[in-house]
Design a protein around this nucleic acid. Structure first.
Lengths: 192, 192
DNA sequence: GTCTATAAGCCGATAGAC
DNA sequence: GTCTATCGGCTTATAGAC
């Protein structure tokens, strides 16, 4: 009789790969390296993930799902007020970029290191960016501001800057500065 | 006697490598690919650049020199007023990120795709970031604003965001938005 | 574990200027 | 013929894939 597949193998490989991909970049990590760290055989890895591209896509998709959960949780705690939800999103982002070992946004890093955005990982990464931007756009549309397009563009610029700046030397204060600046822009657009 | 070395060989190879490195990422481009595009032999490339790391470092260093020239030229045209110089820098940056084929800042892309920042290319890239940030800091210090540290952090956040956002889908308006936002922040900090 | 492709880097072979 | 800039193939390691 055949041996039963060990449960959680796929997740364990994916965990290992995700850590390596994030810490060293997708291109710099080889399949052999993942196998060594996951302590599995090549056959097992290729049984679960038919190619490196698929493994990368799964890694990014899992990150995307995690982002969506964080977004929903932050939104739930912030209630119905769109400005509170925007600030909650900024604070959640600020928290994530301040986590130890932060090395930039996985999606932005992927798009920076791989030029071809037409394969599955590239489509997931661009979808993440467009989706996040649209979520901000929707919340801003609920605010009663004179120029919602401008405010959306400004917040998005700060979000992009936050992810990038926090990964660079001297980026320790970026999170705090980004949150306070977005608050000020919302107040300024809504208030006065 | 002996054959004369062809003039401009080093520059031609470097031009080719720079284009490939920028368009496809440093890691994705092999030495053979550079040789094929530059239409030279391996020996010639390795005579001019002893390793790929050195070639990448030379590429980044040349980009850094080009940045310094643009900075000085923009500063010269803006005159002595620090706020005019800051805005001139933002406008020059806005222009560069709107150039066709823009695929992000070469230094930030390098740091995103290579995790080890201790080798020569990594040191050049981080030096560029710290230097640029300090230049902004110096100009802001010349302004009479209540909180120069905060204004510096805010402008830097927008600069980081501009480089990143302009490379992403829907980033067409980022340049214009970044310039106008920095103008507003300077006016707000100095004026009212 | 093995296979093929390709990476970086090295060296014998080639060829063009005197 | 001689000398050297340049070329193309070689080596070793490692990539992805079966």
């Amino acid at each position: 009789m055949a041996r039963k597949p060990a449960p959680g193998t796929r997740e364990r490989i994916l965990d290992t790969a995700a850590t390596l991909f994030y810490d060293h970049g997708v291109q710099a990590v080889g399949m052999q390296q993942i196998i060594d760290h996951a302590e599995c055989g090549k056959n097992l890895l290729y049984r679960e993930f038919s190619s490196k591209t698929e493994l990368v896509a799964t890694y990014l998709e899992r990150e995307r799902q995690a982002f969506l959960r964080r977004w929903e949780e932050a939104g739930r705690r912030a209630g119905d007020d769109p400005s509170a939800r925007l600030i909650a999103f900024m604070e959640a982002t600020a928290l994530s970029v301040q986590s130890p070992g932060y090395r930039g946004c996985p999606f932005r890093n992927y798009l920076a290191e791989v030029a071809d955005h037409d394969d599955l990982p590239g489509r997931i990464a661009t979808a993440y960016l467009l989706d996040t931007r649209e979520r901000i756009e929707s919340l801003v549309a609920e605010l009663n501001v004179a120029d919602p397009v401008l405010l959306t563009e400004r917040i998005w610029l700060i979000v992009e800057g936050l992810h990038t700046a926090a990964a660079h030397p001297g980026g320790d204060r970026a999170a705090q500065v980004a949150v306070s600046l977005v608050k000020e822009l919302i107040d300024q657009a809504a208030g006065a």
